[in-house]
Design a protein around this nucleic acid. Structure first.
Lengths: 212, 212
DNA sequence: CGAAGGGGTGAATCGTGGTTCACTTCTTCT
DNA sequence: AGAAGAAGTGAACCACGATTCACCCCTTCG
């Protein structure tokens, strides 16, 4: 039994894997998914194309992990922004929305890739998961607010999804091109979202359905 | 000068062109953009693949027109739903949102293709135009409401975009798969949107920016 | 009728980029 | 040292689907 991977070798291997994922993330941030060929990623990581396939069964698998990683960061950031710490839920959601928007505007290409750029169908699933995670975070805060009576009862999942969509849409327009009036845009998005949260006094014209 | 196209021949030609576009739209509705190869469209239209290229310089051009056409119908439907006819603007917007949602749920695959499916970058521009058209319709109604004092002043473009995003997001989740509680979903979306419209009495925490 | 084109055809071509694999290089362990 | 096997290499391969083009048929009009 002449050769068996040692911790040292395994670490080296893991390091290469990381480098590939990192290169892919950078490539995404730089030129979007369209530019992220296996060749480009490999070159960027300083390895041969074949090496990529030593670490990932396919391009789709690589990018599934890339999306998972990149969006994980975003989700964490949002989670931190809305974390319960005594603030009223409305304020926490406002902070979350603002964090979401600012991060996206700070890295437009990546945000576009994460939110809206055409990708491989297999990768699309990861994007879905990402949006769902966002929605769930908002939904949890909303549910909390309903429970404490801070806001009116409503279908928290739908509202949370709508918030995510609203933010995404208002962002993906500006993302590709201008960068004008960012502050105003952020303020607009935040006030829209805050305003959209059902107030306890609001008389919503509900006609069917309701709680989740 | 032995041969020159006559109206009769031109009509025949135009008819073939229509058939191709129609076939492409149907293909989109059936299997989404992913299934819409030039071969498939040609076969469906009952012409040879080469014929497609007699009428369109490229696949992208064909589908640009297809998207324009298909989304044109949607936009028209929305325009009709929000048309000024004495109803309060809030009600008109509610009708528009409902029409949007119902149409999408009635033809899920087409709606997904129009709203969110990964497509050729060249076609993506058409989708953008589509969303913008939607946004503009909502924005116009909102502006009208602001003018008449029915609703509070706000950044109508951002709010309109947010509405479109909210509807799209809440819809594209359910689109691919289930069809459960459609009525509840529609009701949820509508009430979210109605609720999100700035009321005259609302004290929005605006911090910057404002009117368009 | 027959020449002059235009429209239609569909098999072959081509470009792109993901994936493979025979080979080289590096580690480990006796 | 040298055998056994893992990791890395990158040029070649391949699948897929858009696009082309040499050829056929049909319409128009002298």
């Amino acid at each position: 039994m002449p050769y068996r991977p040692t911790p040292r070798t395994e670490a080296r291997r893991a390091e290469v894997r990381q480098r590939i994922v990192g290169a892919a993330i950078d490539q995404l941030a730089d030129g979007g998914y369209a530019s992220a060929t296996v060749q480009a990623v490999a070159a960027r990581a300083g390895v041969a194309t074949g090496t990529v396939y030593r670490h990932f069964p396919s391009k789709a698998d690589l990018f599934a992990e890339v999306f998972r990683r990149a969006s994980g960061r975003e989700v964490d950031a949002l989670a931190a922004a809305v974390a319960p710490d005594g603030r009223p839920v409305t304020e926490r959601i406002a902070a979350g929305v603002e964090a979401f928007a600012r991060r996206a505007l700070a890295a437009p290409t990546r945000a576009y890739a994460l939110l809206a750029e055409p990708v491989d169908p297999a990768v699309e699933a990861e994007r879905l998961a990402f949006r769902r995670a966002y929605r769930d975070l908002f939904a949890a805060v909303l549910a909390e607010g309903v429970a404490t009576g801070e806001i009116a009862p409503h279908d928290t999942d739908t509202v949370a999804a709508a918030l995510v969509g609203a933010i995404g849409e208002t962002l993906t327009g500006p993302l590709g091109a201008p960068r004008r009036g960012q502050e105003a845009l952020v303020a607009g998005i935040v006030s829209f979202c805050v305003n959209a949260i059902p107030r306890v006094d609001a008389r919503m014209p509900v006609r069917a359905g309701g709680e989740t």
